[in-house]
Design a protein around this nucleic acid. Structure first.
Lengths: 352, 352
DNA sequence: CTGTTAGCGCTTTCAG
DNA sequence: CTGAAAGCGCTAACAG
């Protein structure tokens, strides 16, 4: 049974046999150890080439106790360009470290998130970057005792300690609302996620704070909640527009809501200023003015990867270091309306 | 040295010791083998719970020779919504099979693609889904002798045999061009990728075939090439519009070109019909008519994952089966222009 | 139904 | 500088 091997997958022993050295010498050459004679190094390299040998990373990981060079990424919806950009940033940061990303899409299902965490831990990932789907991550405490470090993205950890990377939700909403106020708006509606969602409540807080600072009132019926889909946002915007005194501007807490609101305006043939989180392509060619809050999702991913790298095996951060938190800044971009006589520029940027 | 273990990572032996059975019995229980007595099963399950034991998938993979339950995905640009949707479809198809996706972004660099293939093979992925960056994949033959099966997406394999999933590039371009002809256009310009890119040449072929069938001439200067970025597309479109007899419609082979062409029209205050591959959000609210070719990128990913599943360990396809090819159909969607008096519908679909 | 033995492919450890 | 022995955590193969 000694010779019953697949021809295409040689092992280190076969390389050793061909090179007439021990497996250890081959192992040393493969890892670039300096303690190998020039002669042996060449013999081994030749044998590797002849056999088309490729080291088995799984076997290596097993022996090296958990050094798998893999990182888990759990997102709620890869179809959202925001998460795609996040994944891109993470991959770009980790690949040069020789680490690979294992991708999981939860479709917003907390149970699926929990399963994924368990499975990734089983696969010995060295760390996990998590965009949480549910309200709490307390389960991580029992799921990962002594397991891989976790970095959370987009909302702070709840029920557990972990590093995290956040967007300046409050500041961005505050700045965008200020831009609307500066443009002379006094009747400003709000279209957003339910307050149970972290980003939704933070952005609502920023919105309210700006209004309050300006002494501008916010009638109860100017506040509408919608889900993350166009239809629900359109319906909510319709309600705003149907008010006896409709708002002259609407602030939306996410991309879907912004575009839904625009469609409602267009269908009702109303001109009002649209404002919201997340820039989008063609925002500058719409028939109403658009003011958006934007930020660099790829950079968010890079930050998350760097935080994680610090916690992983070989990282620079002491495990006793307190949870770290990075807040990524936002920028307000004002797009002129298509038929407007205003500035013709594609976008006017202002620091948040 | 027997007890020098990290408390948080128990092994199967510790579970066995606690349950007072052998490691094999634990292993059997974990995998749901029916040949375990009820008593022992309960003892083991209790011990697992007490210790918080989680099987080590790396050790399992090593023993089970390559059954890692991982698949490699190599794309050129995750930031492109098309690839994000592709990844989503692949993940959705593989996750229920207990397989995880290892993601790699090549940024269009063939050398990076080759490195990624080697690394993924080293990590013992059971298969690879590849959106090729370079003109040939001949290197796979020497890189993967007896290695994991590969499925290509978006363009057919070159220099090697492999299953692949393609978009009906020819048919889509043909149908879209026919739609322009049916709308009465006789001066139709072409804005596309260099013909060295598979999709570019196929779409050009479809475009030409439709014109030829209709007996409509295609002047040389009606054909312009652009890269996959807005600036280059805008410049190329400018040239088309600057012709003595400019086209009344422009067919573009990709999303970036379509939007670039639209920006050129808008800047030059010209009304012409825009047509192109890939639908995009807000296409229906532009100031000119837009006719796009669309297809389901997520479904493309699902098809790719299914083809791969057939070739992987435990798959249903004999390895001697000839390379399979799936062509995903396209749909032509006509969006009415914003100020037009035509149909008010969001989009008129027609089978390609 | 259960356990023992052996070994996946590699690297740590220690002895030359 | 080199190699032999042992074993990472798990499971196939066999024997009871």
């Amino acid at each position: 049974m000694e010779t019953a091997r697949v021809p295409g997958t040689p092992t280190i022993r076969e390389v050793a046999a061909l090179a007439q050295v021990s497996a250890m010498t081959v192992s040393r050459v493969l890892r670039g150890s300096p303690t190998v004679s020039q002669t042996n190094r060449e013999r081994v390299e030749a044998a590797v080439k002849v056999l088309g040998y490729r080291p088995n990373a799984v076997a290596r990981s097993l022996r090296q106790r958990h050094r798998t060079g893999t990182v888990g990424l759990i997102v709620t919806n890869l179809g959202n360009p925001f998460y795609a950009a996040l994944a891109l940033g993470i991959e770009a940061e980790l690949a040069p470290q020789g680490r690979r990303v294992m991708l999981t899409n939860t479709a917003g299902d907390p149970a699926s998130e929990r399963d994924a965490v368990g499975d990734l831990a089983s696969r010995q990932v060295e760390g996990i970057i998590l965009v949480p789907a549910g309200p709490t991550q307390a389960y991580l405490a029992e799921e990962l005792p002594g397991g891989p470090p976790v970095v959370m993205v987009g909302r702070p950890p709840s029920g557990i300690d972990a590093d995290c990377v956040l967007v300046d939700d409050f500041g961005g909403a505050h700045a965008a609302t200020n831009a609307l106020l500066a443009a002379g708006h006094r009747r400003i509606g709000f279209l957003g996620n339910p307050p149970s969602v972290y980003t939704g409540s933070e952005r609502y807080r920023g919105f309210c704070a700006a209004l309050e600072e300006a002494g501008v009132p916010l009638p109860d019926d100017y506040v509408r909640r919608a889900q993350q889909d166009l239809a629900s946002a359109e319906a909510a915007a319709d309600q705003l527009l149907a008010l006896p005194e409709p708002p002259t501007a609407i602030f939306c807490t996410n991309n879907r809501n912004t575009i839904g609101a625009y469609r409602a305006l267009r269908r009702n043939q109303v001109v009002a200023t649209i404002s919201g989180f997340d820039d989008f392509e063609l925002a500058d060619v719409l028939t109403v003015p658009v003011t958006v809050v934007t930020y660099d999702a790829e950079s968010l991913g890079r930050h998350a990867a760097r935080l994680l790298a610090g916690r992983m095996a070989g990282g620079d951060v002491d495990q006793s270091t307190l949870p770290r938190r990075i807040v990524v800044p936002t920028t307000v971009v004002t797009h002129a309306a298509l038929p407007s006589a205003g500035t013709a520029s594609r976008g006017v940027r202002a620091e948040a």
